[in-house]
Simulated assay, not measured.
Amino acid sequence: MTMKRGWWLQAVLLSLGLLGAAAQAGQALVPEQSAITFVGKQMGVPAEGKFQAFTADAALDPAAIDKSRVRVVIDMNSVTLPAADLTTEVKRKRWFDTENFPQATFESKQFRKLDNGAYQVDGTLMLKGVSRDISAPLTLKTEGSDLLAEGQFEIKRLDFNVGDGQWADTDTVANEVQIKFKLRLKP
């Protein structure tokens, strides 16, 4: 009997280990159904931008949220704004400086479930060579076998040296920038 119980215990521990590994297994980003956008204001008028190329290394599991992780890498040269001249301008040294900082990254440190059924991710955003800790509320929704992670958060552009010199005046260009994300992940 002891031997049978020992095997059973080993089988349970092994299956728990495999379940834990499943929560850490990678998910593939579906780029055409994912988006990272931002909205800033110039002279009080909102201007929305978009990043057309980014990758995500993710293992998100609502059932094991504390073991979840994500790392997003954004190609800063893929930025687009409503007008071509704005797109060219935002890539320049005073703004994103895409020549010297071609990527921005977000790396999670912790995921948490909130009381209202939503989640929060805490992590580090590196933009233009500056790292800052951020927190973002998000929703996780299963659609078939896919997982949809959506959320938004606000950053202060001057914290990342975005828009320096004459553009540091927040009366002309607001300091607050809203970032929105939608990541569709396949198992």
Rank of each mutant, 00 (worst) to 15 (best):
K128R: 15
N116V: 15
F160G: 03
G151H: 04
A168I: 03
P137V: 13
T124M: 09
A136D: 06
I134K: 01
R112M: 14
L114H: 03
D169C: 07
T124L: 07
A174C: 09
D159L: 08
V173Y: 06
S135F: 06
E150R: 14
T172N: 12
L125V: 00
A118G: 15
R132W: 14
A168C: 06
L147C: 04
T172D: 10
T142S: 12
T172A: 14
A136S: 15
D133P: 13
I155V: 07
E176K: 04
T142L: 08
D133T: 08
N116T: 12
L127Q: 09
R132C: 09
L127H: 00
R112Q: 13
G144Y: 00
V173H: 04
Q152M: 11
R157V: 02
D115L: 14
I134P: 00
G129A: 02
Q166E: 12
G129E: 09
A136M: 02
R157I: 03
W167P: 00
S135V: 01
G163F: 03
E143G: 08
V173K: 07
V173P: 01
Q166F: 08
T170C: 07
N116H: 14
D171P: 04
A149I: 11
N116I: 10
K128I: 15
D164H: 10
G165D: 08
S145P: 12
M126H: 11
I155S: 01
E176T: 05
Q166T: 12
T172W: 08
R157P: 01
W167N: 00
Y119W: 07
A149Q: 05
T124W: 05
Q120T: 06
A168H: 01
Q120M: 07
K128H: 13
N116P: 12
R112S: 07
L114W: 08
P137F: 06
T124Q: 05
R157N: 02
D164Y: 11
S131D: 13
A168S: 13
V121G: 04
L114Y: 10
D133I: 08
E143Y: 10
G163K: 01
L127P: 05
T142D: 09
R132P: 15
S131Q: 15
D171M: 08
F153C: 00
A118C: 15
E176I: 05
I134N: 01
L125K: 03
